[in-house]
């Protein structure tokens, strides 16, 4: 959000906002004065008041003036833009690293100790480096309150951004690069907390997944939220990009395998294969190729938790 009350949300806010201020200030000055000048001319030299035009073909002096002054002003603007941007490219060595996975259509965040969340948790006043990994198509990680944005390019090495959150609070985090059907739902939040609170939160890897974890089913649901299953698979039976999970456990369904239809029962083996090889058996009536394998991203235990949860979705 562009508002003064959170101007200290990150270390880049000052440089970016100053650039805006300089450019918008100069721009409004020119817009207003040129518009007023134009209106004055139109009024004053209206045919009724000024029936005969005075022919003036130009003035070299004026041309030079109005080339040089805008040149200097734009160089000034360039300078502010450059000065505000430069620090964004230099990551401090002691920055905490978080890996961000972007896929159609959600973000997930992996911390140095392996903890994984769907919301970005960060300590206040510590530099953070986000390593950006795009799993499928272009995405762009955008946190307006921090004034940062960086495209996530599939296959690109050294794809990163950094900043230092400077104010506690919850901020929006968007995907800014169009990435298909659910692009506008690809957003999450950044939760900035005091360093001590963050340290105890991150250290607690048993509590991987926020509060209220009492059963494998809750863990399963939380894992699925973190990796974004529900962007494409509903829990209430409504049809999204992929089939709904509602009442799916134990049902016999028609799938397409290598171009041929066959019947399968949704059991542990089927779910496991659908997660690791999503395009092997595609439920009839849905498109192939939209889901990517979660091989290497979800452990056996994660998948078991997911299976426990799916059994309960009715």
């Amino acid at each position: 959000m562009y508002s003064s009350e959170i101007t200290q949300a990150s270390n880049f806010v000052k440089g970016v906002d100053l650039t805006f201020l300089v450019i918008l200030g100069i721009s409004f000055f020119f817009l207003i004065s040129l518009t007023v000048l134009m209106i004055v001319f139109i009024y004053k030299y209206n045919r009724k008041r000024h029936p005969v035009a005075k022919q003036i073909e130009g003035s070299t002096k004026l041309e030079i003036i109005w080339t040089v002054i805008p040149l200097l002003l734009t160089l000034l603007m360039f300078y502010f833009g450059w000065a505000g941007y430069k620090p964004m490219t230099k990551v401090p060595d002691d920055a905490m690293e978080v890996t961000v996975y972007g896929r159609m259509w959600n973000f997930s965040f992996e911390y140095e100790n392996g903890k994984r969340t769907d919301t970005l948790f960060l300590p206040k006043d510590k530099p953070v480096k986000l390593n950006l990994v795009a799993m499928d198509v272009l995405h762009s990680l955008y946190i307006p309150a921090f004034r940062v944005k960086q495209d996530m390019v599939p296959g690109k090495e050294n794809n990163f951004m950094w900043f230092e959150p400077q104010k506690e609070g919850t901020y929006e985090l968007f995907c800014a690069e169009y990435c298909g059907l659910q692009h506008s739902y690809m957003y999450s939040y950044v939760n900035v907390m005091e360093d001590t609170a963050f340290q105890s939160w991150i250290a607690d890897t048993t509590q991987v997944l926020a509060e209220n974890i009492d059963s494998p089913t809750a863990t399963g649901k939380r894992i699925m939220q973190n990796i974004g299953c529900f962007a494409c698979h509903s829990l209430d039976g409504s049809r999204l990009v992929g089939p709904s999970f509602k009442g799916i456990w134990g049902e016999e369904i028609t799938v397409v395998t290598d171009g041929e239809e066959r019947q399968v029962v949704v059991d542990e083996e089927y779910v496991r294969r659908s997660i690791y090889e999503p395009n092997a058996d595609v439920v009839d009536g849905f498109n192939k190729g939209l889901m990517l394998s979660y091989e290497g991203q979800l452990s056996e235990e994660d998948v078991n938790n997911i299976i426990e949860y799916l059994k309960t979705v009715n």
Binding site: F20, I26, S27, M77, G81, W82, G84, R147, A176, E177
Partner: peptide
């Protein structure tokens, strides 16, 4: 001009 300046562009690009 806002979009030409690097720092400001980073903020409002793709918005």
């Amino acid at each position: 001009l806002v979009l030409g300046a690097l720092a400001a562009n980073i903020y409002v690009h793709d918005t």
